[in-house]
């Protein structure tokens, strides 16, 4: 399977004269884990907002599974098979864990106001299906026991997992994870690593923006590097780690600290 699920060509996004993303093109292959890295302010989140439809590109085009997305609104993209999480959590704080994830089933269910108001059999049947599917997703991220708690009661790491469960509940072909490792403990990051591998095994393609280089380099098939809105490199993790432009872009920011520490640990233990 080497077909392209997402194809971005010459993407550009301008905010009142400031160019956040400049002429970026890339392909993401079906079933791969594709990471986007870059220093702060490189335009990674803007890129995510373009892909998911929160912004429309100033110029350029995005194709999803071969079809141009044009100005399709985010909820349409979700229906097409795209889901995302947010860098700073955006959970529905007025709902329980399970209800949050049940919202994720919205695009995969259809009963409307009338069926709901009259509580027709179709509504009840679908509601049960929604609950079961959502519960599976909650269980999958290991939160089954806390399903009925208000989402705000969970730890930061727990809330991140709820966001992922909610996104997974939409049955995405392509999952966009915006810094899923930020603010997690080392232990939680390991769990995340396993979870992402699991999701890929189920056939999901994953694009992730991430600062945690250990996670990125360990998990990604390919990495794209952005700097000042421009793509400066793309390749496998080893290629990226040796790329001079990447190292220069990160100069003074210590590009792969975690990785070096890891290498050091390995050397002493062996």
């Amino acid at each position: 399977m080497t077909d392209t699920i997402l194809q971005a060509t010459h993407l550009k996004k301008e905010f009142g004269g400031v160019i956040a993303v400049n002429n970026v093109s890339f392909d993401v292959l079906r079933g791969e884990i594709f990471a986007v890295i870059g220093p702060n302010g490189a335009g990674k989140t803007t890129l995510f907002n373009l892909i998911s439809g929160a912004y429309t590109p100033t110029t350029g085009e995005i194709r999803f599974a071969g079809k141009p997305l044009d100005r399709a609104r985010p909820h349409t993209r979700t229906k097409l098979g795209m889901a995302r999480t947010f860098q700073n959590l955006r959970l529905f704080n007025n709902m329980s864990v399970l209800e949050n994830v049940m919202v994720g089933r919205h695009a995969r269910s259809r009963y409307g106001i009338l069926e709901a108001a009259l509580r027709l059999p179709t509504a009840t049947r679908e509601e049960n299906a929604i609950r079961d599917a959502a519960m599976q997703c909650v269980a999958r991220v290991g939160l089954a026991e806390r399903a009925n708690e208000l989402v705000g009661n969970l730890s930061f790491g727990g809330q991140r997992l709820v966001e992922i469960a909610r996104a997974v509940a939409t049955e995405p072909k392509l999952l966009l994870l915006d810094e899923p490792g930020a603010g997690l403990t080392r232990h939680e990051v390991e769990g995340l690593d396993t979870l992402i591998h699991d999701l890929r095994r189920d056939g999901m393609t994953v694009i992730l923006v991430e600062h945690n280089m250990e996670l990125v380099m360990g998990i990604a098939d390919r990495v794209m590097v952005l700097d000042y809105g421009q793509k400066i490199a793309e390749g496998t993790p080893p290629q990226i780690q040796q790329n001079k432009r990447v190292i220069a872009a990160y100069l003074g920011e210590e590009p792969f600290p975690a990785l070096r520490m890891e290498a050091h640990d390995d050397a002493t233990s062996s």
Binding site: A54, H75, K79, A83, R90, F92, N94, V103, H106, T170
Partner: peptide
């Protein structure tokens, strides 16, 4: 009510 953008991203029109 809670977050329009998150609702939209989860398939809510």
């Amino acid at each position: 009510h809670a977050s329009e953008i998150a609702a939209e991203m989860n398939g809510v029109d």
